[in-house]
């Protein structure tokens, strides 16, 4: 398999949002207007947007009479077989590419203008891509490919004070994920790794993933849209090629 992966250990995340803000800083992304009125929540901005590739999600619940507050630093999972790329490939070659060395799924903002955004978003099992309604461009986490190629850690990983964000060779990250899972299982029997075999951003959560975020795990009914399914039917070789 090879390439790079993240391991995001939410058991260590304190929701300091260093990662969220460092991501913006590195990419020179502007702040978006937020307000507490009608929202009343520390999770700001409310959701990912064209200028926000990384968002720490806050969710509070009551579990067995105790309050819990779960933090989920959400970002593109860099799927091993990215369904968004299948959609894009159906329209414009090179609108979405997979970097052969790292496995990073990279968006071409300009070219993606020509790909219907709703199809792209529908295809994403994690509800990640966001469009700028003004320009039609679509953006998301780029694995800090410029940094990684220069031998640096992604900005969010570099910033994280607690060790929640980790990045490295896929094998190394998988091993780390499994080791941490075994450790936390002792205290948290519901602990699990999320979709570890199909994504490059592997989350460790301590409880039912739905309590962290609606799209923490891949939603079953998306991933392959009708168009992609048809494409698969008529162009099996092309489909297969897009996987490598």
């Amino acid at each position: 398999m090879g390439g790079k992966s993240f391991f995001i250990d939410t058991s260590r995340c304190t929701a300091c949002r260093g990662c969220q803000i460092a991501c913006k800083e590195w990419h020179g992304l502007p702040a978006t207007k937020t307000t507490q009125v009608g929202w009343g929540n520390h999770q700001n901005p409310k959701d990912l947007n064209f200028y926000t590739y990384k968002l720490v999600r806050f969710s509070e619940h009551e579990r067995n009479g105790k309050v819990v507050w779960y933090f989920f630093p959400d970002q593109c999972r860099h799927c091993l077989e990215p369904p968004c790329k299948d959609v894009a490939d159906g329209y414009v070659k090179g609108a979405i590419v997979k970097d052969p060395e790292t496995g990073a799924v990279i968006y071409n903002l300009e070219k993606l203008k020509k790909v219907p955004f709703d199809e792209l978003l529908d295809a994403c099992p994690y509800h990640i891509p966001r469009q700028d309604p003004k320009t039609g461009m679509v953006a998301k986490c780029d694995m800090c490919i410029d940094r990684v190629k220069a031998g640096l850690l992604p900005m969010c990983v570099k910033t994280c004070p607690t060790g929640a964000m980790n990045f490295g060779d896929r094998e190394e990250m998988l091993a780390l994920a499994k080791k941490r899972l075994a450790e936390v299982k002792k205290k948290f029997p519901n602990a699990q790794l999320l979709d570890a075999d199909s994504v490059r951003v592997i989350y460790l959560v301590l409880d039912d993933p739905k309590l962290y975020h609606e799209y923490a795990v891949a939603s079953k009914d998306v991933g392959i849209t009708r168009k992609v399914a048809l494409k698969k039917l008529f162009d099996p070789m092309g489909w297969l090629q897009s996987l490598v």
Binding site: E25, A31, T34, Q36, N44
Partner: peptide, 21 residues
């Protein structure tokens, strides 16, 4: 986390105001 003291530094910083407006 997102602001510092009376915010004299951080309230001028759009990313931090975005996070805690």
């Amino acid at each position: 986390t997102e602001h510092w003291q009376t915010g004299v530094l951080t309230r001028w910083q759009p990313w931090l105001v975005e996070a805690e407006p």
